[in-house]
Design a protein around this nucleic acid. Structure first.
Lengths: 251, 251
DNA sequence: CGTACTCTTGACCATATTCAAGAGACGTGG
DNA sequence: CCACGTCTCTTGAATATGGTCAAGAGTACG
């Protein structure tokens, strides 16, 4: 509902898109840029804490994150929540789970966010007119699967400390790759409850695990967020080598 | 290595494909069928227990499962294994995790399997010439994500009994939807070690959990496999409503 | 007829959860 | 300006859940 609250729509033209210009993503051809410009329907400005998509509903839109960050999650009937993944600038939202039927997960903003809005009903047109872009969407879906696979391995088979270390290192790498949180390197806002719901642990145990990482000088937790103090120690605790570097496509 | 052992190649023509004929999947247009026929490079016959894809390697192929079943998994350096999902007839293998770079997971056959082999290097051609098929591949990737999301919710937030009940009910529904294991309704072969590695539990605890489900007359475990005795009880324990029914595409 | 694999069970231990309580920061309204 | 509620983090203690170790039974297979 928050998502529908009337907000002023800024309109950034696609050829001035800060993400395209950043060089972090694959460059569009002129024809692609023209098509994407017509595919774009507007912008959605969401406040921190607001819900962008709701499990069980049918969204007519697809989104690309322009700024800010949030998370995808599912809940059980009694309220238990599992965070599935985080959405950062450049991430495409709305394809996960299903292309055409109702949403099977919710998305909530952690910080204030600006999202680029596309019409879901025109998605097939994109495949017809610009196969490269269709291919890119599949590429993004495959990348999301890769993250989910690793996350599942983490929750299923890593110890609490390994899981926590993996998550924080993972978020740090993802943030760095899109130059999010540049000032001070502090990753925020994020509460220990979010971490707990991502790791599949209780809040109390998460707190104790994070304190252990702090006492090892791997991280510092402050307010609602954290800083990486020693990424090598963190990765070593996690037994994780980091994300592969690749040129990312982008819609 | 097992995957490369020389096996006689049967050649089922695409227009006689048992899966296309089964009616469980979206029908191809004539043009699509012709293209898929040329896209298909051969068949791979894999024995139960053999490895089809290996994490860290670069596979030149994509596969569609024609018969039998197997599982996707990842391992940690010390051998801990997490099963990510199962592959059943009609499932497309090789897009999960990445389209173009090395595999981030392995695939192993549970039963003897026959797979339809495609050339990965021609995937983009498919997007160019048959946008519907490209769209279908994205659809399949989204469906895989949906399963992973639910699985992650399970491992992260459900209790051992809920997880086990969910998994068995899930496998049953998936098997039914492609008429796998029709005779006797027994889902096999599958060891309790597989179940444990899927649920993120130890073998011993998995055994105790399955015995509990047995004593509630929800399932029967026999040899290497199980039978559903009461799907409603199982779903109720899991707190799960079942998979949505949809017409599936297929490559 | 031994060997390997799967399942089973009990006993003990480790890990993680729940419950409870309190500290500190922040914003709001009196 | 202060009192109050809310939110986040922290800690200890009791408890529950699940893991590890160990051993044995049943079956299949060479």
């Amino acid at each position: 509902m928050d998502a529908k609250s009337p907000k002023p729509k800024r309109n950034i033209a696609c050829d001035e898109c800060p993400l395209v210009c950043s060089g972090d993503f694959r460059a569009f051809s002129d024809a692609e840029l023209r098509f994407v410009s017509t595919f774009k329907r507007g912008e959605l400005v969401s406040d921190a804490g607001s819900t962008i998509l709701v499990e069980g509903t049918h969204s007519p839109h697809l989104y690309t994150v322009l700024s800010g960050w949030g998370f995808r999650y599912k809940t059980l009937e009694d309220g238990r929540r599992q965070i599935l993944n985080y959405v950062l600038p450049g991430d495409f939202i709305g394809v996960q789970g299903s292309l055409l039927s109702e949403m099977h997960h919710s998305v909530e903003a952690l910080s204030d966010m600006i999202l680029c809005v596309f019409e879901r009903s025109r998605l097939f047109e994109l495949y017809e007119k610009h196969p490269e872009l269709g291919f890119d969407i599949t590429w993004l879906a495959a990348r999301e699967e890769q993250m989910l696979d690793e996350h599942l391995l983490s929750v299923g088979r890593r110890s609490a400390a390994e899981r926590a270390a993996y998550l924080l290192a993972f978020l740090n790498e993802r943030a760095e790759s899109v130059a999010l949180f540049s000032r001070g390197n502090r990753i925020a806002p994020l509460t220990q409850q979010h971490v707990a719901d991502t790791l599949g642990l209780s809040l109390v145990h998460t707190n104790k695990t994070l304190r252990k990482l702090t006492s090892q000088n791997a991280i510092a937790w402050l307010d609602s967020g954290f800083e990486i103090k020693d990424i090598d120690v963190l990765k070593q605790i996690a037994g994780w080598d980091g994300l592969p570097e690749v040129a990312r496509p982008f819609i």
